[in-house]
Design a protein around this nucleic acid. Sequence first.
DNA 1: TAGATTGTCTAGCAGTGCTAGAATGGCGGT
DNA 2: ACCGCCATTCTAGCACTGCTAGACAATCTA
Lengths: 187, 187
Amino acid sequence: MNQRLRRERDRAERERRIVAAARELAEAEGWDAVTTRRLAALIEYSQPVLYSHFKGKDAIMRAAALEGFAEFTERLTSVRSGGVRAVAEAYVSFADEKPALYDAMFTLDLDLPFGADDTPPVLRAGFETLQAVLEPVAEGLNTGALAEVFWAALHGLVTLDRGRRQPRRYREERLALLVTRFGGTPG
Amino acid sequence: MNQRLRRERDRAERERRIVAAARELAEAEGWDAVTTRRLAALIEYSQPVLYSHFKGKDAIMRAAALEGFAEFTERLTSVRSGGVRAVAEAYVSFADEKPALYDAMFTLDLDLPFGADDTPPVLRAGFETLQAVLEPVAEGLNTGALAEVFWAALHGLVTLDRGRRQPRRYREERLALLVTRFGGTPG
DNA sequence: TAGATTGTCTAGCAGTGCTAGAATGGCGGT
DNA sequence: ACCGCCATTCTAGCACTGCTAGACAATCTA
């Protein structure tokens, strides 16, 4: 009865395609354009099929966000040896290249299980890289809190820049300035 | 014919009430709960009346945001003599007390005329206070860019904290840490 | 008072997330 | 090979959203 296995495989594949379609559509036209009807059309099934995989639209976005955290962590850890500056640049470029995904991860209100005891490792890993790279320059300060502030600053730069709330002019300079304030060597 | 004047006054008053109702409802239940039908019910007129005052729901939110900027600037300038720390605390407490308003101002995508040449003074004033208070500690750095980074950091702290993406535990410590990094005296 | 204008409301459109129940398909046992 | 069952999928619909056309009522002008 490996037909049963095949069906499970097909089902998992379809679930993958749902999240992939959601991500593509979100990057192309924003999350508002990601409607259940358009998603259903993209995967060539009817609308209710989505609800056999996910509890609702939010759950689909959460799944996308979780994929995002994995990719995000990968990006940050891969440049970890480059120190504060390299990690900061990786952070900003990730947010730049995948703005919709970044929003799902860090801006939208999706009830992601942050800051609780049962926070999945994938949500912590990125932050831990940030913390590790700041450790050498913490000089007795609370490294955790320091990393949180640094993260917050990066997040602020990214989101204010995206909403055109800060002038494009000093974009590079702002990042360099932040890095030097947090013990990194300027670019 | 000062009946004409009275009518204009009434009309302006009604417009005020629309924005006030939107703000109250948003703070109480979030912007998603602010629907045109509920707003209409609150001001005791029918739905289309809203559209004789504003082009749409976004315009109502923009009007609320503009009020927010005026109050925000007032708050920041009033503690300006307290230096970096006082201004930072005023920033955070404003965001804390009026989260929905803060979102309309700084998070939601409302096409507010930022960063252009025709940016209304009320949108600039708050930032200029930030810039002024950082001037003494800029030490030859680009004060504008420095203020933008400081602002971004405050914005990041506020929004990540709101989404429960940073632990409540180090809240105070994060702010103190940020202030010292930007030349202020710790609390 | 008659007519014109302004203001307001009722009703409706197209879209949203989501779901109940009908119809379809492929599976197992005889 | 057939029949009945069960899981899967679809059609159709609900209540809601922002927004608007056109009917209606109230007000001002002459």
